[in-house]
Design a protein around this nucleic acid. Structure first.
Lengths: 272, 272
DNA sequence: CTGAAAATTTCATATGCCGGAATTTTGTCA
DNA sequence: TGACAAAATTCCGGCATATGAAATTTTCAG
């Protein structure tokens, strides 16, 4: 299968070690396996890992030999979720919504071909979602908030994402291209997304896009709840509430910070 | 003043760039400032940053020149909070507690001289806490959960932490050594921590330690709420609930995984 | 529009990285 | 518990590659 056979600098190799560890067994990986996965010798991997440990990116369980990501890394990364300050801006919004609606609220941001869950406040009902936890990632188009973003992207960009994501979505067994396009059209027509379409039985959700000052859908607010809690009588008010908060949030996004619009590099690797 | 004047490998320097960026202005840092802070020339910093970008650890706002941590980094790190799988184990616990108590619940783990907020589920009341958000860090001893951990550490270790942390706590203007020792004694006597002591006016909280199979306080559960919600009639039942859940959680921690006990390296840098 | 500061590229040099082989440590199976 | 195999770590010579001065281009401020 396509093996990442990139002959690269020592730095890049070391960073790839971090990825390998992150994606490996949460209990930690052995040097041998890391070296093998990275395509380098054990001494090389070993020395890189020493440095990674010295800088606090990686740690070993006390006494043990297995390498895992360090808690320092976790702390460090909390500061990476601040793209545009959006997370802090959105926090009161999420809290308000959760308090009013008594359901779980998600904040998603677009990141390349994916939507990333930046934050989440849960209601009293147990919810299963695609995005899952904070830091979770789903292909654009899968899930309400994610679809809300995709549906409101500029035409050309939307096409690019669709082309890239359809195989990924099919792989996950959820939707084909026709279905996706239909869902996008519907989302665009309504201005929001309502998927009761039993992707997860008994669950339902709503997503609305968050536009920045340029009308670009940088993020989405979504709600996840039990299907029975989104019946015809409650649904309109929930939509209204989400849209109101999304509009307020969008207005607060610094219009002079052009970031978040076009992620700078080739982004998330596909998982086809 | 104390300048990190460590002549180190290229890898370590590059990793230090990540730290510099993480601790800098969230809007991003310029190459010149990064190079200066890292103590290397601009070309060197530049090429390291190119690699960091290529690996998705760092990104530039579209078109701009400033470097910031990438969202990929955020995604990656979500997997770093899994020390011991504690986060997943604790999630249902947090949800249960939040649902029953209608208050904000924190999960803290010990990390060197600090406690790190691994997860948090909020109740309907707006709360100010020391730890703040997920990924937040406080010196052991500051805050209810954090103090609960410190109070139940083995004597020698506790002394070491106290010696290290007292200056940091004083710097924050919160407590002196005598006060800390009194609080520790009280916490140990009760088995839990109750700080209504107006550190934050109107706020109150409770913390209970979570012990692993060896009786080592690896973590803490805590509740943060309005002072008026922890009156004498409600307090005992809240304590009981937290303790019950803490005990259950402790029992689930894999007793054969010795990690989390002694963080492997020198840990969090002081901020004196 | 202009000039200064920052970013990026070039290039010769030597530094410090690389992997094979040797040595020590660890984990496993009797 | 002992012994063996596998993994981890250290050593070391050769050379790839990171480095910083200088030159060039781009950006930004006034």
């Amino acid at each position: 299968m396509a093996e990442a056979a990139a002959p690269i600098s020592s730095l890049r190799r070391a960073l790839s070690l971090v990825r390998i560890i992150a994606n490996g067994d949460p209990a930690g990986l052995r040097l041998k396996d890391i070296a093998e996965a990275a395509g380098c010798t054990q001494p090389t991997a070993h020395r890189a890992l020493q440095d990674l440990m010295a800088e606090g990116f990686v740690e070993q369980e006390a006494g043990g030999k297995r390498y895992r990501l360090s808690l320092d890394f976790f702390v460090l990364a909390a500061k990476a979720g601040q793209a545009n300050g959006l997370r802090d801006l959105a926090r009161p919004v999420l809290l308000r919504l959760a308090a009013s609606l008594h359901d779980t609220i998600f904040l998603l941001v677009r990141h390349g071909y994916d939507a990333v869950c930046l934050d989440r406040v849960e209601g009293p009902f147990p919810i299963r979602s695609f995005t899952g936890d904070i830091g979770g990632r789903v292909p654009l188009g899968l899930g309400q908030g994610s679809l809300a973003i995709l549906a409101h992207l500029p035409e050309a960009e939307q096409e690019e994402v669709i082309r890239f994501n359809v195989p990924r979505l099919i792989d996950r067994g959820f939707i084909d291209e026709a279905g996706l396009r239909a869902a996008i059209a519907e989302a665009r027509r309504l201005g929001w997304v309502n998927l009761n379409t039993g992707l997860i039985p008994g669950m339902a959700g709503l997503g609305v896009p968050v536009f920045d000052a340029r009308g670009y859908p940088v993020a989405a607010l979504s709600i996840g709840t039990l299907a029975e809690r989104l019946g015809p009588e409650r649904l309109p008010s929930v939509v209204h509430m989400l849209q109101t908060e999304a509009a307020k949030l969008g207005a607060e996004i610094n219009p002079f910070d052009p970031s978040l619009r076009y992620p700078s590099r080739s982004l998330s690797k596909a998982e086809p």
